[in-house]
Design a protein around this nucleic acid. Structure first.
Length: 803
DNA sequence: CTTGACCGGGG
DNA sequence: GTGTACGGTCAAG
């Protein structure tokens, strides 16, 4: 008998001779790769009997019945009576075991047809996740596996007999991480870049004068070399940016083309895509392939300022780092003409370097999330917010003997979506204009704390037998306050654990490993605590409750209103407010903030708190077309000169650089209280456009071609530009991003769109009227300027010579 | 105003 | 794979 302390990396299951076994991949602190088999775990579901049915009789009936489906026998291996909590009541159910996971959906259908059975539950939980939940195994924590050694390719292979969890071991595993990135030209891989802490490489078919470049004969060798490097370096974590949808897709197609097996995992099997809805995940067994783009888009995006989630903007926001400045056009030209390949290879390497650095920042968070939710890292980094939350809830429910609700049918989901939307956060209508000395105050985790303060939870909603109810006049439902509900209890645990962690962090060196790991844990807890409100209103949720979500936002609005009222009583000018924050203008704000906070916080229930988020020396709010202040569109200027811009066009990619740059300059001048200077900036750009002084680079607008140009029903500039380029022999197809410029001449705008390579001139009027002026006037109209004035026409009609 | 198509990331 | 899971924006109807 061998006993090993390991951390789990990955699990799946296999079926042999009609029997299922779990595979667990892990690692010891001595860097040994471990594979264990667990042959003792069977798939099951819960059968909930009709009310008047005698459980023992039903048990007997199921034992005596031979279930089958289209000539396949559906074995029932075991039956257990269980008492579980369903909402606010306790129910008696049967736990029905079968032989292999694939039998479970079939068994569910057969059982559900029995008149004695009301419904089945928990029949759609992936087998490997069920295993981890039931065994209380969490990736990222130590477990001890005991069993007999077997033959195998990994350092040790065990046929497991027992697993012990909750092992205290003061050691972390340093996962060996490599980021990679492909460069592709005309559907062939021309470069692979790899980046690790101790290693950087670009593999390509050209000779390039760079130390990190390794030249191979052809594309086939290039793929083989990549696989070899992953294997040789025994990579634990392979990462990249959008590698699921792009790099691995290309890699698989090209490997198929050469009849190569992409065996990049630790089990020697071919890489497979896991499909989940509209996403696919490239799964390498026994290694963690963590694509960070899905994590960024599903989990981080709501908290990011950046509107686009491309590698460049995300790295800029999270790391303060940018990609090398090389456009796709330049790259194509470079490869086609075999010129400047050094620059190209630098660019390629930079991409995987950025992906690596982003990984260093995010993977610890992903691994923490994996530990808290108990999902394997592969899942933790790909699931949506709602799915992450649900998996956390499933585990917490199981620990409390709570039986999970079923996932809603497609029909039910669309009904939920169609239901009238309930009101969300309160947004205060600002007065357009310029403000100075602004304090930004916000509630710490408003919705989670509201849920705790009022015990808002699906299992406290409208309980018959209840002493103390929290009712809202507006709604005909109430929440029982007698016992903490499932959701408030979880929020409280997360929030309390989080403040304990933050307390601990105060006494630690910020650069220490312990500080960093605690920081990642509290981040992950914050992510989860904040997800519950959204989850309750998510149509696909098992624990969906429109009432809970609605009551939560309602109370959130109440608290913001109260805060605004207090601010007004204290003679602060309320500039703006959105959901959980207020912007207040007041002289000597530093001095007055404390008494304001004290007043607000003393009125709040325990657990809720308003904080001062920051002080800004100026703020600018624009107006809508009707002239009233616009919501969610403003710019703030901090003491140190940083601008925080929200909602303006300048962050959107379907605007040309010249429009975005001008708008940014105009905003900065305005925030510096120099409106004349702002007008000058706009006028100067208009003039430069007229005189043809603006480089074409600043005029291109990006749009992605999603299908073949001839398949578009409507005309659009990027489609027309693409059609013309194709006629000239360019290789352009679906997936290509078209950089186009509107050129001079007659006809519609679309007919004058040209890809940047063929743009001989540009239509200055188009750029003035449709790009620069709308972007600039969005800001300057607040000061009474019109587009005409910015074009220079205002001089005649305004205060100029005629007045 | 409602409905349906498109789009994200990557090269 | 205990399968098939988004959400926002914009033009067209």
């Amino acid at each position: 008998m061998t006993s090993l302390e390991i951390q789990l990396i990955d699990t799946d299951y296999q079926v042999e001779d009609g029997e299922v076994f779990i595979r667990g991949f892990g690692k010891t602190s001595e860097d040994e790769n471990i594979l264990f088999y667990d042959r003792e775990f069977l798939p099951y579901l819960y059968a909930v009997p009709e009310k008047e049915v005698e459980l023992d009789e039903l048990k007997q009936k199921i034992e005596d019945t031979e279930f089958s489906n289209e000539d396949t026998d559906i074995p029932v291996r075991n039956l257990e009576k269980k008492s579980l909590i369903d909402g606010s009541e306790e129910i008696e159910v049967l736990k029905v075991f079968s032989s292999i996971p694939a039998m479970i959906p079939k068994l569910k259908n057969e059982l559900w047809d029995l008149p004695e059975i009301n419904e089945c539950r928990e029949f759609d939980i992936p087998f490997y996740r069920r295993y981890l939940i039931d065994k209380d195994i969490r990736p990222g924590s130590w477990i001890e596996v005991q069993g007999e050694e077997e033959e195998g390719d990994l350092d040790q292979v065990l046929d497991v007999e027992s697993i012990e969890t909750g092992i205290e071991k003061d050691e972390d595993i340093n996962w060996y991480t490599v980021a990679f990135d492909l460069e592709v030209y005309q559907e062939e891989i021309i470069m692979v870049s790899l980046y690790a802490e101790d290693f950087e490489k670009v593999i390509t078919t050209e000779e390039i004068d760079r130390d990190f470049v390794e030249t191979v004969e052809n594309e086939e060798k290039l793929i083989k070399r990549l696989v070899e490097i992953i294997e040789d370096r025994d990579v634990d974590i392979l990462t990249g940016y959008n590698t699921d949808e792009y790099d691995f897709d290309v890699l698989r197609n090209r490997a198929e083309h050469y009849n190569l097996t992409l065996a990049m995992g630790r089990d020697g099997e071919r890489m497979k895509f896991n499909r989940r809805g509209r996403f696919k995940g490239a799964r390498l067994k026994g290694r963690m392939h963590l694509d960070i783009y899905p994590f960024v888009s599903h989990v981080l995006a709501p908290g990011l300022d950046s509107e686009t989630l491309d590698l460049d903007s995300v790295s800029e926001e999270l790391l303060g780092l940018n990609k090398d400045d090389m456009s796709w056009e330049e790259m194509k030209t470079s490869w086609k003409n075999k010129e400047d390949l050094e620059k190209f290879s630098d660019y390629a390497l930079k991409d995987s370097e950025l992906a690596f650095k982003l990984t260093e920042e995010l993977v610890p968070q992903i691994l923490e999330l994996s530990e808290i939710t108990g999902l394997i890292p592969f899942d933790a980094c790909r699931l949506t917010y709602g799915q992450l939350t649900e998996n956390f809830l499933l585990r917490e429910a199981s620990e409390r003997d709570i039986i999970a609700s079923n996932r809603p049918s497609q029909d039910k989901r669309s009904k939920r979506r169609r239901q009238d939307a309930y009101s969300g956060g309160f947004v205060y209508t600002p007065e357009a204009g310029l403000y100075r000395e602004i304090g930004l105050f916000d509630f710490k985790s408003l919705y989670p704390t509201v849920m705790v303060a009022h015990n808002i939870s699906p299992d406290t909603l409208n309980i018959e037998d209840c002493e103390d109810r929290f009712s809202l006049e507006e709604f005909d439902y109430n929440f029982c306050q007698d016992e903490p509900g499932f959701f408030p209890e979880l929020v409280r645990e997360l929030v309390e654990d989080r403040s304990k962690i933050k307390e601990k962090m105060k006494n630690l060196d910020e650069d220490s490993q312990e500080y960093k790991s605690l920081d990642n844990r509290q981040q992950a807890e914050k992510i989860l605590a904040n997800s519950f409100y959204g989850y309750l209103g998510y149509s696909g949720a098992r624990w969906y409750s429109r009432e809970c979500a609605e009551a939560t936002t309602y109370m959130g609005r109440e608290y913001i209103h109260d805060t605004i009222e207090i601010a007004e009583e204290m003679d602060f000018e309320v500039v703006y407010g959105d959901t959980d924050s207020v912007l207040l203008e007041v002289e000597d704000i530093e001095d007055k903030a404390d008494s304001f906070l004290e007043k607000v916080n003393s009125d709040l229930p325990e657990f809720m708190k308003l904080e001062l988020e920051g002080i800004f020396k100026r703020g600018f709010f624009t107006s809508t077309d009707s002239g009233e202040g616009a919501k969610k569109k403003y710019a703030l200027l901090a003491e140190n000169g940083d601008m925080k811009i929200t909602g303006f066009e300048q962050v959107r990619r379907d605007w040309s650089p010249v429009a975005k740059k001008t708008q940014k300059k105009v905003l900065r001048k305005v925030l510096e209280n120099d409106v004349d200077g702002a007008v000058e900036e706009a006028k100067k750009t208009v003039e430069d456009l007229r005189e043809g002084k603006i480089p074409v680079e600043d005029l291109k607008i990006y749009t992605t071609l999603t299908k073949k140009p001839e398949n578009y029903g409507s005309t659009a500039p990027h489609v027309e530009a693409a059609k013309k380029a194709i006629r000239r022999g360019e290789d352009i197809g679906p997936g290509d991003t078209i950089a186009y410029v509107i050129t001079r001449g007659g006809g519609t705008i679309s007919s004058r769109a040209e890809t940047i390579e063929y743009a001989q001139d540009y239509d200055s009027d188009y750029y003035i009227e449709n790009q620069v002026l709308p972007a600039a006037i969005r800001v300057l109209k607040v000061f009474g300027y019109t587009e005409g004035q910015l074009k220079g026409e205002g001089k005649q009609s305004g205060l100029g010579r005629f007045s």
